[in-house]
Design a protein around this nucleic acid. Structure first.
Lengths: 343, 343
DNA sequence: AGCGTTCATGTAAGCGCTTGCACCTAGACT
DNA sequence: AGTCTAGGTGCAAGCGCTTACATGAACGCT
């Protein structure tokens, strides 16, 4: 494996100049820089990451902590992070936190303490106090996505705002009998997302002067199967059947759609359904939803962590991140309330 | 950050002994080992990855190369890899290959050459000759999953066997008019998976003496939407309608299920559907499928790469990996051929 | 002309580990 | 008793970079 000495020899300069030319730190004349670059190209030199890290204290590597790899939302965020970091020449090391307490513990106690990363991104992680302490004790920049931890720099989306947007869309279409499929407190660990979405839903109804008694709630578990079951309960009897459903996730919304289909309820004529997420399956089901652009969330997190890493020795601290964007995507599962519809 | 010297001082031994006690290389008396371990615990010492890598040439880090992060199959494999490697104390560095040639190139030219990893796992990657060359030029152990490259150690699944298994299940239920939803050659890049599955399908039919003219093929793109469209074409007219469909992926099978539902075709009474993958949505749709255990595939790849890494300086080479397992999971979408059924 | 700056470069001292080698002590074997 | 082997330990030389510091040249000032 070719080393820096060989490059230096070939370029006719010292290794110090090679290092400076390559890292952009310190002054190097144009002539020297060009000779170094030519030597690097012809030798195919790439600096050893460990040697460079050891000497400089910088690793060019970001750790990503996340609870699931196999859920659409998380993969999208990870995808966004990976792309953005790669473009900046950073590697990414994955730390997948399982439910297993012992494994989780090892990650905080060992993996993260190997000085292998310059910063950490924590995706929608529900960390307890002790874990947050340990994260902060690493003395590394940390950026959390979707987390509400007041002790961590957080990139958050306005959960209530998203829910309100979805609900107002239904209200704007003339719906009053609107049901909500949410999730119980067991899912609240995850930054109280279900609760916040429900609050946004209720606020929108209240602001529109729609009495709470004309609405209904069902709990599910964020899955298609759960949404299907909840919607089946909601739509099972014609009596008091809602004309619209706002589901707290696209997967539950899709479950509701399938339930409606099963029951012979036409969408959107007899029932409007709106979800939240911007899930990839939404297009196929023509689902109206509030897209939260998870890919973009990942990119934003990558930018934020890089700014924080750079900012460690910078004079001005990086600006506090703005809230994440979301947008209503109207497709075919919502339509105007039709007085003449059965139900 | 506490270093090895501090541990050595506290344990009353030299740093060499600390290193040996911690790595398990070389001889250390039980007494010394215990003192070292106690010191490590009380100081919360974790060796610096870069220093250790630089000195030893071992990184305790595996690179994972994959084409998509946001597809269920890949996330599952990655999940399996991550879990297995973590249990062995290894970190994992992610290299997500995009379609962008320049970015792809950078990964091979730069990222992988930083000496940051002890080995590389390539998941279902369709690498051209030049890329394979570069991978081999790294002089690192490489394990590929699902790849057919004769130049790489490969963990492969018997694609034709899976297809045959699914088809034989349908034949065993008495079906003759069996249609196949596959994919075109544009998807063949991916190790000719569509072609191999189709071959298995045809072989099973031939072996059962079912004439080719009683079967039909439709092409799709591995998605639900594609499966839906293909099945709609297949089932659109009662004339020559198949009694069973074998789809080359679960997502296409689910699309077929939804198409059948739309057309009022009952499953499994009027139509049997079987897929391949073991997709997470399969349970909800009661889909009969050939599960290929992607999580397990990832674990197997992790084991294989660790064996290869260990085997670099071992006497006996690690045994060639066995083929990956798959299994038919019979759920509710397949049933006996019913002569009396309409169509 | 003299001085302070800034730029350009080299020298060499680390960064925090691992490990070859040397040395010592025991026990095993002739 | 003498020779081996193996276990146990420490010393110190790296691993391949980065960077503080020193040096010298070139430039703009007064």
């Amino acid at each position: 494996m070719v080393g820096i000495d060989e490059v230096a020899r070939r370029a006719g300069v010292s290794t110090a100049t090679v290092s400076r030319a390559l890292s952009g730190r310190g002054h190097v004349s144009d002539a020297a820089r060009e000779r170094v670059e030519a030597a690097v190209r012809s030798l195919g030199y790439v600096a050893s990451a460990s040697a460079s890290s050891l000497a400089s204290g910088r690793t060019r590597n970001i750790g990503v902590l996340l609870p699931f790899l196999d859920r659409w939302f998380f993969s999208m965020v990870l995808s966004g992070i990976a792309g953005a970091l790669m473009r900046r020449g950073y590697d990414i090391t994955l730390y997948s936190l399982t439910a297993d307490r012992a494994e989780r513990d090892t990650i905080f106690a060992t993996f993260l303490r190997r000085q292998r990363v310059d910063g950490v991104i924590a995706i929608s992680l529900e960390l307890d106090e002790a874990e947050t302490d340990r994260l902060l004790a690493l003395d590394l920049p940390v950026v959390a996505i979707g987390g509400p931890s007041p002790r961590l720099t957080t990139l958050a989306i306005d959960e209530a705002g998203m829910a309100r947007r979805a609900t107002e869309h239904l209200i704007g279409l003339g719906h009053h009998a609107i049901a909500h499929i949410g999730a119980g407190h067991d899912f609240d660990l995850d930054f109280r997302i279900p609760t916040r979405r429900r609050e946004g839903f209720e606020k929108a109804l209240a602001d529109a002067g729609i009495p709470a008694r004309s609405t209904r709630h069902e709990l599910a578990d964020f899955t298609i199967a759960g949404g299907f079951a909840a919607a089946t309960r909601l739509l099972g009897t014609p009596l008091g059947r809602p004309t619209a459903i706002f589901a707290a996730s696209d997967e539950m919304a899709i479950g509701a759609l399938l339930a409606a289909r099963e029951l012979g309820i036409r969408v959107p004529q007899d029932l409007s359904v709106v979800g939240i997420d911007g899930h990839e399956l939404g297009g196929f089901f023509r689902l109206t939803t509030v897209d939260q652009f998870p890919l973009r969330q990942g990119e934003r997190a990558a930018e934020a962590i890089l700014a924080a890493v750079a900012g460690r020795d910078a004079v001005t601290p990086p600006p506090a991140p703005e809230a994440l964007a979301y947008d209503l995507v109207v497709r075919g599962t919502t339509g105007p309330f039709d007085r003449g519809a059965p139900g």
